[in-house]
């Protein structure tokens, strides 16, 4: 059984306005069948270029790639019959209804009229779109459009699906819905290559990960291995009164069994936490000890931290106004691929 994806030495550069931009630099990638593999990296790292080459949209300058043993250049036709592609923009027709879109893509994938209609109904129901099936897609919300887009790639039951940043721009509820669908697909045996800028998304979905930077894979591993490399989550406790520093430090030390870091300037005590520790576990003892707390936050490692750990530098060099949310921090970027 050949691997779902086998790529070696992929290189690709583009003529940009400021000279030649190297998008891929001898990239190697293996994705075993039946798994979810994540390509993790900042914008411009080359993730989309990998997907475009593997989905036959782009020819590499050097190197070769196979999908289920079919060469993406020489056997492009067979590769196309095997894959489904869900890109960053919802690639569906806005003027047609959801049902019409799915039937059309089904027919174009080679299903008979009856099979296309039946499969469309099945997917509309499964993707919670049956209520909107006969409305024009332009009336859909972003999340609905993304689900329809995913359904369109599934019409012919592809063995391999490319999900290029499937949840970028979605609200949290839609994001969780898409994650659920992706997991179901894997349950059914579909191989999935996922690109994402969100460490949390990779952590939630992927069986294995490749961290990409400047067109190369700089790290392969499971999400747990990567997280171990990054280090644990941290709890940040912000105090109201500097007189409470000693008590707070003592409480956290007793609770977590590690030595907390004190940041006097930020009025903050920080400590690494282990799995299973919750904010409540820390908040109540602090309260019992009479410590006035203005904020407690569990800071998860972000993609930025992964980059810092793996490369020793931040994912995006020239950016200092980065705001880190507690979850799924996104690295701001300046276009390009």
């Amino acid at each position: 059984m050949p691997a779902a994806v086998l790529a070696s030495g992929l290189s690709k550069s583009f003529e940009g306005r400021r000279g030649v931009v190297t998008a891929l630099d001898k990239l190697d990638l293996t994705v075993p069948e039946g798994t979810i593999h994540g390509l993790l990296g900042p914008n411009g790292a080359g993730k989309t270029t990998v997907v475009r080459i593997l989905s036959t949209l782009l020819k590499p300058d050097a190197g070769r790639a196979e999908v289920f043993g079919f060469d993406v250049e020489k056997d492009a036709w067979r590769v196309r019959a095997t894959i489904g592609l869900t890109g960053q923009d919802a690639a569906v027709d806005r003027v047609m209804t959801g049902r019409e879109n799915l039937r059309m893509f089904g027919r174009l994938f080679g299903l008979s009229k009856r099979a296309a209609a039946a499969r469309a109904d099945e997917l509309l129901q499964r993707f919670d779109l049956d209520g909107a099936a006969d409305r024009q897609v332009k009336t859909y919300s972003g999340g609905m459009r993304r689900r329809l887009d995913l359904a369109a790639s599934l019409m012919a039951r592809p063995r391999l699906i490319f999900l290029d940043e499937p949840t970028t721009g979605l609200d949290p509820r839609s994001r969780i819905q898409v994650w659920g669908l992706v997991r179901e697909l894997r349950e059914e045996g579909t191989t999935i290559l996922l690109t994402t800028q969100y460490l949390e998304e990779a952590d939630q979905l992927a069986d294995s990960l490749s961290v990409i930077d400047h067109g190369r894979v700089i790290k392969n591993g499971t999400p747990d291995e990567l997280k171990a490399e990054v280090g644990p989550d941290w709890v940040d406790v912000t105090l109201v009164d500097s007189a409470d520093f000693d008590t707070a430090t003592e409480v956290l030390r007793g609770k977590l069994g590690v030595e907390p870091v004190v940041d006097l300037e930020a009025m903050r005590v920080r400590a690494p936490v282990s799995d299973g520790d919750t904010i409540a576990d820390m908040l109540y003892p602090l309260k019992d000890a009479g410590v006035a707390v203005s904020d407690v936050a569990l800071r998860r490692p972000t993609l930025d931290d992964v980059f810092l750990a793996v490369t020793g530098r931040s994912g995006e060099p020239a950016s200092n106004d980065r705001t880190r949310a507690a979850k799924g921090a996104r690295i701001p970027t300046k276009g390009g691929r």
Partner: peptide, 23 residues
């Protein structure tokens, strides 16, 4: 589900005039 997957029509892509006309 397994049976479902094996039934994939996409494994043997069609070509030729009827296929072109469908497109």
């Amino acid at each position: 589900v397994t049976a479902d997957l094996r039934d994939s029509t996409a494994q043997a892509p069609r070509r030729g005039l009827p296929w072109w006309l469908t497109g």
